[in-house]
Design a protein around this nucleic acid. Structure first.
Lengths: 143, 143
DNA sequence: TTATCTGATATCAATATAGTATCAGTTTAT
DNA sequence: ATAAACTGATACTATATTGATATCAGATAA
């Protein structure tokens, strides 16, 4: 079970960098170089972030991307759901009728609880809170 | 993010059925029919459960599979790890050096906490505990 | 008027997941 | 002894997801 795909991971790192660049446009190239994210992959990702309303862009030379939303209101949960879909038990759970199978139903009950905890945690974590932590450790030697 | 793949789901259901059949061998066919699991897929799965030591088999007519371990000691966490790999942040986390990237490191810290919670929960849930719940609700109308 | 950018697509490769098919060999029951 | 009911072991296929690359058009700044 992989909690974050590379895409989500890239998105978080790109947003953190954008959130930290107060008011300046950053080019995809700059983000790609700094965060070591494949350039064309990042381009597509940034387009998605625009569609999600987290980012705006400016075309042409000296153009680039800027964060367009309070970092405290960009939740990791939103990003996971956008790029990986909702946290769910197993794919059929919400399509087939619930409890078609007794055993599955028993398991479901337990897992729903775990899902809720995970969702609450990811809802709590925002780009803003991550940035805060990042600034807090800045200046310390790498672990 | 999908918590359980079909394979893990099938494994849990098959083991629950085996755990409930005190001392009798159940054929792959019987399990397949009852739990609605594709027959050949289940065959392979049962072989894996043998290799994992959860199940033993008997060949020939009237043969089949029997659980070979106390259901309370078969943890859902084990099954998830066997069929889906360890719960992890992102695939590179434990391969590349930790904190090669500051931002990732900040995120990692948060996610490690979540992972721990999830792991503890899945460690707590066993085939035995699920079976117990299953028996408790048996007789009640389907939800 | 060229270099530096984004917008929009199209394509591709690798991997994981889910499912199917087949043949050999074992055991039970008749 | 032999047919039916089983498992052991593989090989194969289909599909979806993930990750990555390439290309062309158009906007903007110096």
């Amino acid at each position: 079970m992989k909690v974050l795909t590379k895409k989500t991971d890239y998105a978080i790192r790109a947003l953190l960098m954008l959130a930290a660049s107060n008011g300046r446009y950053l080019s995809a190239k700059a983000i790609s170089d700094e965060q070591d994210i494949p350039y064309q992959f990042l381009r597509g990702l940034l387009q998605e972030l625009i569609r999600l309303g987290h980012v705006v862009s400016k075309e042409g030379a000296r153009g680039g991307f800027m964060i367009s939303r309070d970092p405290d209101e960009i939740r990791v949960k939103q990003l996971i759901e956008a790029f990986q879909g909702k946290v769910q038990v197993s794919e059929c759970m919400f399509r087939k009728q619930i409890c078609a199978n007794r055993a599955k139903c028993v398991l479901r009950h337990e897992i729903m609880r775990i899902e809720e905890v995970v969702n609450n945690e990811f809802e709590r974590i925002t780009i803003g809170s991550l940035l805060h932590n990042l600034k807090r450790i800045q200046g310390q030697p790498p672990a």
